[in-house]
Simulated scan of single mutants.
Amino acid sequence: MNSRTKIILLLIISVLAVMFGISLFQSLTDTGFYVSTRKMEAKLDDKEKLIRFEIDESAQYPYQAILNFEGYINGKGILSFGTSDSSIYVSDTIDDDFKINYRSDLYADWCIIKYMPISATDGQVKIKCEILSHKK
């Protein structure tokens, strides 16, 4: 094998090694996961409320929801999380100042937050919802 052939072979191997390295780097840094984040504030009073959050268009196959609630209420109420009225995963009774964090499996493209007053007259809640999915 002459020196010219050795140089060409070395160049080909070098190019392939660089391409493999770039591909490996992309696969390690692009996890293929997506987080749909929604934030909102809602007034709490003596009326029931139903809030629906959906995943972003860039997401598919959700697998987990992370919800944070923080607020106050004059009286008592119930905050629930699920995928429909008949499919509630967790509920908490709220009164005075409250802070609640949920982390739950979720396999629907949406989740709902349901508020039911017990003896509430007024209040406020800040909601942060993160739905973990795969990228499309």
Score class of each variant (00 low, 15 high):
111 C>I: 13
23 S>T: 01
128 K>E: 10
49 K>V: 08
73 I>Q: 02
20 F>R: 00
28 L>Y: 02
23 S>R: 10
59 A>C: 08
37 T>R: 12
135 K>V: 15
50 L>Q: 01
106 L>R: 14
127 I>Q: 08
96 D>C: 02
33 F>G: 00
15 V>R: 02
75 G>V: 09
34 Y>G: 01
122 D>E: 15
68 N>Y: 12
74 N>Q: 08
36 S>C: 09
89 Y>Q: 14
35 V>H: 03
61 Y>T: 13
82 G>N: 04
104 S>D: 13
104 S>F: 12
128 K>W: 01
92 D>F: 14
95 D>G: 01
74 N>F: 03
24 L>G: 00
135 K>G: 04
106 L>S: 03
35 V>N: 12
104 S>E: 14
110 W>I: 01
20 F>T: 09
43 K>A: 15
53 F>Y: 08
109 D>C: 04
102 Y>H: 04
68 N>M: 04
104 S>Y: 06
76 K>P: 02
122 D>H: 07
46 D>C: 06
75 G>N: 00
93 T>Y: 08
66 I>V: 14
14 S>R: 03
30 D>C: 01
117 P>T: 11
136 K>Y: 08
129 C>D: 11
53 F>G: 01
25 F>W: 05
24 L>K: 00
62 P>R: 09
98 F>P: 08
30 D>F: 04
101 N>Q: 11
29 T>R: 05
105 D>L: 14
38 R>L: 05
124 Q>M: 15
27 S>G: 09
38 R>W: 08
120 A>R: 05
81 F>G: 04
126 K>W: 11
57 E>I: 10
20 F>C: 00
35 V>M: 00
94 I>H: 12
108 A>H: 15
39 K>C: 01
32 G>P: 07
126 K>S: 04
37 T>E: 11
16 L>R: 02
114 K>C: 04
30 D>W: 02
101 N>E: 08
119 S>G: 07
24 L>E: 13
62 P>C: 15
21 G>S: 12
125 V>H: 05
52 R>L: 03
85 D>K: 11
125 V>Y: 02
26 Q>W: 15
53 F>Q: 06
29 T>V: 05
104 S>M: 09
30 D>G: 03
127 I>P: 01
126 K>G: 13
128 K>H: 11
28 L>T: 05
56 D>G: 11
40 M>E: 07
57 E>P: 10
108 A>P: 03
123 G>M: 03
98 F>D: 03
130 E>K: 08
77 G>M: 09
115 Y>E: 12
124 Q>N: 04
21 G>K: 04
27 S>F: 00
27 S>V: 08
78 I>C: 03
58 S>R: 14
50 L>P: 06
49 K>Y: 07
97 D>H: 03
32 G>D: 12
98 F>C: 13
28 L>C: 00
82 G>V: 08
58 S>N: 10
15 V>Q: 05
